[in-house]
């Protein structure tokens, strides 16, 4: 017969299981379950877009900016499927939290994203290459927006496959960005005097998206309203008052 646990001090402190061995053991299965097709499609399409200036005899930086933005959007659309997990419901109540699982997926894709972006930048001929720092900021913000949309969908709707909705939301945001009035514009030309201030806004977008991601990766805990109510009517068999 199983011994039934007696309510104890573990309500204050969890039994410590180090996260590192769990993460190490999860590497292989999580790498296996990543949305390889969506990531590959976004990456390949993005690289093709980044390579387009090579078809021009004299490409300029404006062409490079537009195509690098499109490439970053393509990659982010693929990454929007990163959190798709058909087994989300069956793993909804395991001790390894959502933050670890989502964080691991992001960590696995991060090196790929860095390599991919480096390749995309190198594909743009030097004459057409816009400021690398600013474009990297834009690409990072676009990717973070995609991941924020996916993590928010997981947190607030419990969807197991939020990718399609997140990708749709990202596309809508991209369209909306083209409609922003000049003082708030994000997609400004490289020669525009508002280039620097636009990138301050890009930095704000990135920070906001990262905050949304961080918030939505956590699982909601609602404290018990009144633990005293758990005491049995007789007061002899229920958990003690805490």
């Amino acid at each position: 017969m199983r011994a039934v646990a007696v309510p104890g001090p573990d309500l204050k402190e969890p039994t410590r299981v180090r996260t590192y061995p769990v993460v190490r053991a999860l590497l292989r299965p999580v790498a296996h379950m990543l949305p390889h097709r969506a990531l590959a499609a976004g990456s390949v399409l993005g690289l093709l877009l980044a390579a387009v200036p090579r078809l021009y005899e004299r490409p300029d930086a404006e062409l490079g900016v537009g195509l690098l933005r499109a490439a970053a959007l393509a990659f982010a659309l693929g990454a929007a499927f990163l959190l798709d997990d058909p087994a989300r419901h069956i793993t909804a109540a395991v001790p390894t939290g959502r933050a670890v699982r989502v964080g691991l997926r992001m960590a696995l894709v991060a090196p790929l994203a860095v390599l991919w972006w480096t390749a995309a930048l190198l594909l743009v001929p030097e004459a057409a290459r816009p400021p690398v720092g600013a474009m990297t900021l834009e690409a990072a913000a676009t990717l973070a927006l995609a991941l924020a949309a996916a993590t928010a969908a997981v947190r607030f709707s419990g969807q197991s496959e939020p990718g399609l909705g997140a990708a749709g939301g990202l596309l809508a945001a991209a369209v909306a960005a083209t409609l922003l009035p000049v003082p708030l514009g994000l997609l400004v030309p490289v020669a525009d005097p508002g280039w620097d201030s636009a990138h301050q806004r890009w930095a704000a977008v990135l920070a906001g998206a990262v905050l949304v991601c961080a918030y939505c990766m956590r699982e909601a805990v609602r404290p018990n309203a009144s633990r005293a109510a758990l005491t049995s009517p007789s007061g002899t068999s229920g958990p003690p008052r805490r």
């Binding site: 646990a5 309510p7 573990d10 309500l11 402190e13 969890p14 805990v221 609602r222 404290p223 018990n224």
Partner: peptide, 10 residues
């Protein structure tokens, strides 16, 4: 089993 889910630890 004596664990309170109202805390992250529980």
């Amino acid at each position: 089993l004596g664990h309170d889910p109202g805390t992250a630890a529980g």
